[in-house]
Simulated scan of single mutants.
Amino acid sequence: MTDLSLLIQSCAAGERSALKQIMETEGGRMLGVARRMLRRQDLAEDAVQECFVLLWRKAHQFDAERGQAKAWIYTILRNRCLTLLRNAHPETALDPAEAEEASDDAILEIAYNRLERTHDLRICLESLDPHKRMAILSSYILGYSHGEIAGRMGAPLGSVKAWVRRGLLMLRECLS
């Protein structure tokens, strides 16, 4: 297992091999998260590339005492994805000030409230129980894994997986 904290510190010291090792360790997963958030391969690749550039430039700002290295990396990625979404779809995007200062729950609420009340997706989301809706929105808007959602919601991993799976089945049925 790779210690991402040490690799980020090595990046701050200018060691390019550390950045390469982070890419090899996390790159595929990061691309998957970006692809889920952006729903376009080209934008996802751009987001991951920009994330690695920012990681290299800001590695000196990482403080292991303030949080985990993986969370720091994925926060950079999530912010890049939100920026790309805002630029790609300005009519549905978050205001830049809202995105920078909003908590995850606020981002989910803002994104959900941006759907028109008569929009089929909103109507179907409203039919889900709150746990399923929150799990699905956390996955698709914030790009969180099932494990991250379970941690945020304080729920067992198996329950979160079931909520997402069953919720998506219900959405598919509702939207068809």
Rank of each mutant, 00 (worst) to 15 (best):
M170W: 07
M153T: 12
L54W: 09
T83I: 06
T2F: 13
H131D: 10
V33S: 06
L43R: 07
A18F: 04
L6D: 13
I149V: 10
R114Y: 04
R66P: 02
E100A: 14
V48C: 00
L4P: 02
I141K: 00
L6S: 11
L108C: 11
I22Q: 00
R166N: 14
V164T: 02
Q9H: 13
T118K: 12
V33C: 09
A88M: 09
T92E: 13
Q61M: 14
Q68F: 05
G158W: 10
S139V: 05
H60W: 13
V33E: 03
L7H: 02
I107D: 12
A99R: 02
S139I: 01
I110K: 15
A59M: 09
A44H: 06
G14Y: 06
R80V: 06
S176T: 15
G158L: 06
R122G: 06
H89R: 15
Q21W: 00
L121D: 11
R29V: 01
L108R: 03
E65P: 02
A13M: 14
L168H: 04
L128N: 04
D42W: 03
L157C: 01
S103L: 10
E126T: 07
V48P: 06
E148Y: 04
N79H: 10
E98N: 11
A47I: 02
G32P: 07
L168M: 14
V33P: 00
